[in-house]
Design a protein around this nucleic acid. Structure first.
Lengths: 191, 191
DNA sequence: ATCTCCATGTAACTCGTTACATGATTTT
DNA sequence: AAAATCATGTAACGAGTTACATGGAGAT
């Protein structure tokens, strides 16, 4: 039994380890709480759920749904949880990532200054908005005491990744602001 | 003339806007300075270079190479630079990113504590090493005065993205250490 | 009447990875 | 002698995006 699912498979298992969901729900969760660190479209989700079911890692119950097709609610099986645990024992591979903004800044010396400024200001606004959102969630989480929960509680790991989100946005924002400052130029001269 | 190259195309143009390179060189550059924010393998690079050449964005000179095939050295054309500039005018799209480690931490409540600890400690070591590397490069860059160069100098944008690299690694490292602290548990109790 | 949301799926395509292939030179 | 590095490419596959398709319910 070779594990080796695509990472999306583990993302779905991770969501379903918490509670059962339909494919539609899972697609939404891959936008909102997971979207920050793992995205996927529904066209990728539905077939993957079928494959996980075929592999015995999920079970589905179909009920007459609201769309033209029945709604299939998926739940993780013990084999699914075991596969998730084995995946956690393998080291995380750091995907170098593909960062559009960084690449653009790297190339930006060929552009006119206002073009670069607009680019970075847009990014700044975006990160500021995200940071705001995450900060609100984190303060609600702390108010509910989720930060004091043990690491075996899923709400603690929610909080842990949210905290990383905050760090990420703060770092990005600080960098955008530093860069904007440099692009606007030292007001008094080159010093 | 619809632009719309794959982003890899712009990454190659960005590198060649600085100076001409062979496909092999470019593959190396996509590991080292660019690898931090844009990765690609040589099997992706060679065909893409051909396509850029066919589109008139690059010119190639073939010379009898050291391998079985001639070495093709590519240089950007004015159409290539123009395409790069147009790309910079379009807003950067923020790719939610796919972060293996974050996903694993999100799922880690199902695992035994030592498994999670090992995972995060490995990540910590990796980020510490990267940070070290970036810090050394940045201090060399500052010693050479690259941080004071105008934004129209490619060495300034080198420095700018390096600075983001440092911020990124620092943020990651701080988070790993916070998480390790929480996983090891408050030594005196739950307070 | 039309639009959006709920809800599921498929098809066509592009992007990216791994593995295969070749062969000279340099290092261990 | 074996391995790594230089240097180019192709083939097969897997991952991911966009567009297509269907149809009910509720809102404008």
């Amino acid at each position: 039994m070779t594990d080796e699912l695509p990472t999306l498979g583990y993302a779905l298992l991770a969501l379903l380890a918490r509670e059962p969901h339909s494919g539609y729900d899972l697609s939404g969760l891959l936008r909102d709480p997971l979207g920050f660190f793992w995205e996927a479209r529904h066209s990728q989700v539905y077939p993957q759920l079928r494959r996980l079911e075929d592999a015995g890692l999920l079970m589905a119950v179909a009920e007459p749904g609201r769309g033209p097709r029945p709604t299939r609610t998926y739940a993780i099986t013990s084999a699914g949880t075991a596969a998730l645990r084995r995946w956690l024992e393998r080291p995380a591979r750091r995907w170098g990532g593909r960062e559009d903004l960084l690449l653009k800044v790297y190339a930006s010396w060929v552009a006119e200054l206002p073009v670069t400024l607009r680019l970075v200001r847009e990014a700044e606004a975006h990160h500021a908005a995200r940071l705001q959102l995450y900060l609100e969630r984190a303060s609600r989480a702390r108010a509910a005491g989720l930060d004091r929960l043990p690491p075996s509680d899923p709400r603690f790991t929610d909080y842990a990744v949210l905290r990383r989100g905050i760090g990420h946005e703060r770092g990005r924002l600080a960098w955008c602001r530093w860069l904007i400052g440099r692009l606007e130029g030292p007001p008094g001269g080159a010093a």
